[in-house]
């Protein structure tokens, strides 16, 4: 299976993937996040894509950061998830699951999709029906 995904997919998912990686692994630096995303099969995330995302998340108060060991060397910036970030991640993941469930239902994937059962019964029930002849 390919590991290079359309840029627009990466753009849509990268914030929650970053938050999830940081929550799972604790204080992490940028390069390590990129490696973990690559190892997860999400493709090569370049620094030029990743750091602005980290900056945005930090600006929103969803990540906190701290520089270590930088005097006279390149140092490392460790980022960690904040409570606010954890709440935002939970919220967006539940919505994302709904969305993915509907996409899968619409394109005629597996009959039983795990995502999307919770708040929105109506459109989800409607989608597979439309596909039936």
């Amino acid at each position: 299976m390919t590991d290079q995904w359309p840029q627009s997919w990466t753009r849509a998912a990268i914030e929650m993937c970053v938050l999830a990686v940081v929550r799972q692994h604790g204080p992490t630096h940028g390069y390590e996040i990129a490696q973990r995303l690559r190892d997860a099969g999400l493709g090569e995330i370049k620094g030029g894509t990743l750091y602005p995302v980290l900056g945005r998340l930090e600006q929103r108060g969803q990540l906190s950061s701290e520089w270590i060991g930088g005097v006279g060397g390149p140092g490392r910036k460790l980022v960690d998830i904040t409570d606010e970030g954890g709440r935002a991640l939970d919220a967006v993941v539940s919505e994302w699951m709904t969305w993915v469930g509907r996409v899968v239902a619409t394109v005629g994937g597996q009959e039983s999709t795990s995502g999307g059962q919770q708040p929105c019964g109506q459109p989800q029930a409607a989608a597979p029906r439309r596909l039936e002849p």
Binding site: Y31, A34, K46, G47, G48, Y51, G70, P74
Partner: peptide, 30 residues
Amino acid sequence: QIVAEVEAHVAESGEAPAEAFGKPREYART
């Protein structure tokens, strides 16, 4: 911050800065 991140990243990854971050002008625009 932005500059320190570039320096830290390329020191660790061994990439050329333009390879990891694109042209300076475009990265600045981002």
